[in-house]
Amino acid sequence: MTEPLVNASLVNYWPLIGVAAVVLGFALRLNPALVVVAAGFITGLAAKLSPLEVLDILGKAFTEKRFLLLFLATLPVIGLLERHGLKEHTQAWIARLRGATMTRLLVIYLFVRQLLSALGLTSVGGHPQTVRPLVAPMSEATAETKHGTLTDDERERVRAMAAGTDNVGLFFGEDIFIAFGAVLLIQAFFADNGIELEPLKIALWGIPTAICAFVIHSWRIHRLERTIALRAARDAAERASNKGEA
C-alpha cells in the first residue's frame, strides 16, 4: 500500500481563517476593499509571514493585475450618461417596440453574452457598463409595457434577473473558450495526474453544460414573467370586481 503524498497532520489549516474573515466582513456589510485587505493580512500572518512579506505579496499582485482595473475608466462615462437620462430614454424607446417582452429581451441578451464569452470577448457586457444602464431598464420597461406598473418587489426581482442573466452568460460561455484560465487550470490538473488532455477537448465538453445553463435560465426568466403576468391579471380582476360592485 502506497504512502500518502502529504501527511494531513502537517498541513497548516490556519490560513483558511482568512476565508472566514471575508465571509464575516461581507455579512457585516463592511467596506469590501478593507475586508479583502484585512483578510489578506490575516491569511499571511496565519501562514507565519511577516507584515512586510504580506505587503510585498499584495503589492506584486496589484502591479501585475492592475489592467483588471481598466473597467473603472468606464464608470465616469456611464455616470454622465445616466445623469443625462440614458435610463429614461432607454425605457421610452423599448416601450415603443411592439411584441417586445422581458423574456425575449433577456433570452436574446443571454444568448449573445454566452456566444461572445465563448469567443473570448468577455469584456463585451457586464454589470456596470451594460446591465445597470441598459439591460435592467429595458427589462423593467418591457415588463411594465406588457403587464402594467410593477410592484417594488417585482422591480427588484427583474433587476436581479437581468444581473443574473449576465452572470450565467459569462460564466458558462467562457468555459468554452480554450484560452480561458479555468480550461488551462483543468488541463494542468489532469497533466499533474498523468492524464494528457488538449484544451480544445476540455472546452468542447463545456458546450453541453452551457446549453443546459441556457435552457434552465431561459425557463427561469419565463417563470418570472409568468408570475408577474398572473399578479397583473389578479389585480385587473379585482379592479373589475370592485368597479362592478360600485
Rank of each mutant, 00 (worst) to 15 (best):
V19K: 00
A203K: 15
S117R: 01
G40I: 08
S117I: 02
K201M: 10
M161P: 05
S50C: 06
W14C: 03
A160S: 11
A210R: 05
G164R: 01
E238T: 14
L10T: 14
I202P: 06
F177L: 01
E156V: 10
V124D: 09
L49H: 09
A39K: 00
H217G: 01
A191V: 15
L185P: 02
G206D: 00
G59E: 07
V135R: 01
W205Y: 13
E225G: 12
T2W: 06
K201C: 08
A143S: 15
R29S: 09
Y13W: 07
T130H: 10
L24I: 10
D153C: 01
V107D: 03
A100R: 01
G125Q: 02
V54G: 03
A95P: 03
A240Q: 12
L70F: 14
L81F: 04
V23G: 01
A188L: 07
L80H: 00
T165A: 00
P51S: 00
K201Y: 07
L184R: 09
A240G: 03
T149Y: 15
T122D: 04
F172G: 00
A38P: 04
I211T: 04
T74D: 10
N193K: 02
C212W: 00
L24F: 05
L52T: 13
F214K: 09
A47L: 02
L86C: 12
E88D: 10
L200C: 03
R239D: 13
L197P: 02
M102W: 11
A136S: 05
V158W: 02
H89W: 10
H89D: 09
L115K: 07
A21P: 02
L55S: 13
V112M: 08
K48I: 06
R226E: 14
L184A: 09
P32R: 09
W205T: 12
V168N: 11
A163P: 01
L45K: 00
E225K: 07
W93C: 05
L110G: 07
L81G: 13
T209P: 13
L150Y: 03
T130P: 08
I202L: 14
L150D: 12
L115N: 00
L170D: 14
A118Y: 05
G164F: 06
F214N: 08
V36H: 13
E64G: 01
A232K: 06
N12D: 11
G59L: 05
G40Y: 02
E154K: 08
E156R: 14
E3T: 06
L70T: 10
A20L: 15
F26V: 09
A162R: 01
P4M: 04
L184Y: 11
E198Y: 04
I202C: 12
T43C: 13
M161S: 02
R83I: 00
A163Y: 05
M161K: 13
L110F: 01
L197V: 14
A118H: 05
D153R: 09
M161H: 10
R98A: 10
